[in-house]
Structure formats: structure tokens, C-alpha cells
């Protein structure tokens, strides 16, 4: 069984969402509910990302779905992953670069989630954004 490594460098956990869709944690045939989305984001957080590796479960084919993200340095992240796994003689993996971009809606939403009392509103804005880009994410995974 291989491992799928989803990554992005836009400072939002799109890679985690893509991995969750692939592993079946988020539905592939319909947009997720806000509760489903919140469960995934509770696991990974909404931060800019420090390239920590998250395991979002296994796909139907038995492939492990890993996700990591950061803000910037996407080119370097790809090279680190490829060269480290090559020197460890690991080749049973597939690297998937997610190229979704943040918009004003999600940026505002992420800021609001950090303010006590406005967390729910922030999550709603993030949810609206995810619904918009969900169609973009599904074909990638």
C-alpha cells in the first residue's frame, strides 16, 4: 500500500481537506456539512501551518492519506519530501500539490475564529469558502 502526501503552501489546510476527502472522512459525492468540516478542522487546526504531518486515515484502496501545509516555501517543501524519502529509499508514495488559493472570505473567517464569541461566525465564513472550492478539490483527489 502506498501513501498519498497532500501538501499546499497557501497557509490554509486545503491539503488536510483533500486528504480527508480521499480517505472518506469528508464525503466525495456531496459538499460536507458544517459539522463534518468542523470535525476535520478540529483535528488539524486552522493555523497557517508549520508543515507538521497529519494522518487523515486510509482510502478505500488502503492507501494512507497524509497532509501537510505551510505558508510559502512550497517549492522547498516538495524538494525536502522527495529528497528525504529518496535517501531513505522509500518510493511507495505519491505527492499531490494542492494549488487552491485563499480569498478574503476565508482570511476573515480564520481571524474571527481566534476571537472569543466570534468563533462560530468565523467557522461559517470558512465553511462558505470550502463549499465554493469543494468542486475544485474533488477532482484532485
Amino acid at each position: 500500500m502506498k501513501k498519498l502526501i497532500f501538501y499546499n503552501d497557501t497557509g490554509f489546510p486545503y491539503a488536510a481537506l483533500a486528504a480527508a476527502i480521499r480517505s472518506g472522512v469528508l464525503p466525495a459525492h456531496r459538499p460536507p456539512t458544517s459539522n463534518e468540516l468542523e470535525q476535520v478542522l478540529a483535528q488539524t487546526g486552522l493555523g497557517r501551518g508549520d508543515a507538521s504531518v497529519y494522518n487523515l486515515g486510509q482510502s478505500k484502496q488502503g492507501d494512507s492519506c497524509l497532509a501537510l501545509w505551510a505558508r510559502g516555501n512550497g517549492d522547498m517543501i516538495g524538494r525536502v519530501i522527495k529528497s528525504f524519502l529518496a535517501l531513505m529509499r522509500v518510493d511507495n508514495y505519491e505527492l499531490v500539490h494542492i494549488k487552491c488559493r485563499k480569498n478574503l472570505l476565508v482570511k476573515t473567517g480564520v481571524v474571527l475564529t481566534r476571537i472569543p464569541g466570534l468563533r462560530y461566525l468565523g467557522l461559517m465564513l470558512v465553511y462558505r469558502h470550502i463549499l465554493k472550492i469543494y468542486r475544485e478539490l474533488k477532482p484532485i483527489v
Binding site: 501513501k3 502526501i5 508549520d50 508543515a51 507538521s52 504531518v53 494522518n55 494512507s64 497524509l66 501537510l68 505551510a70 516555501n73 522547498m76 517543501i77 525536502v80 519530501i81 528525504f84 524519502l85 531513505m88 522509500v90 508514495y93
Partner: peptide
């Protein structure tokens, strides 16, 4: 930190 997180994270998963 980014390099260390990637490498230690991949080492754990693989």
C-alpha cells in the same frame, strides 16, 4: 522548524 516537522513527521508515518 519546517524542515524538522517534515522530516520527523515523514519518519513517523513511514
Amino acid at each position: 522548524q519546517l524542515l524538522e516537522n517534515i522530516i520527523y513527521g515523514l519518519a513517523r508515518e513511514f
